[in-house]
Amino acid sequence: MVAYVMCMALLGLGIYCVLMKRNLIKIIVGLVITEYAINLFFVLISYRKNGLAPIFAADAPVAPETMVDPLPQALVLTAIVIGLATTALIVALAMRLYEKYGTFDIAEIRELKG
């Protein structure tokens, strides 16, 4: 239970970081924290104490009740890959923004309004 609460606290921290910070890099860090909080949550719900690898083999009979659920791990890996792609793109955008504006402060990067 504590682990779930900590996980949600991490999620809250990430969203706080995205909303409140003015530095582009800190916003990106906040995004990454948010993504990872969800990934952690996903892994947590599939965690089983003393669980075994979910392999059905003829010579090693294992009861399904003691196996861990393999699906969330695969899904989290996919989610991490997606997160990587998004983060790489956003970092590249932040670097191009720095090149154009000479600052990472979002208060000074605001040509668009209205």
Binding site: I15, V18, I27, L31, T34, L93, R96, L97, K100, I109
Partner: peptide
């Protein structure tokens, strides 16, 4: 300049949206 700024904003908001969906 404005395209980069808009894309950054869009990407951050879009990623938060995806996080909710996930």
């Amino acid at each position: 300049r404005h395209a980069l700024e808009a894309a950054f904003k869009y990407a951050v908001m879009g990623t938060i949206g995806s996080t909710f969906i996930l």
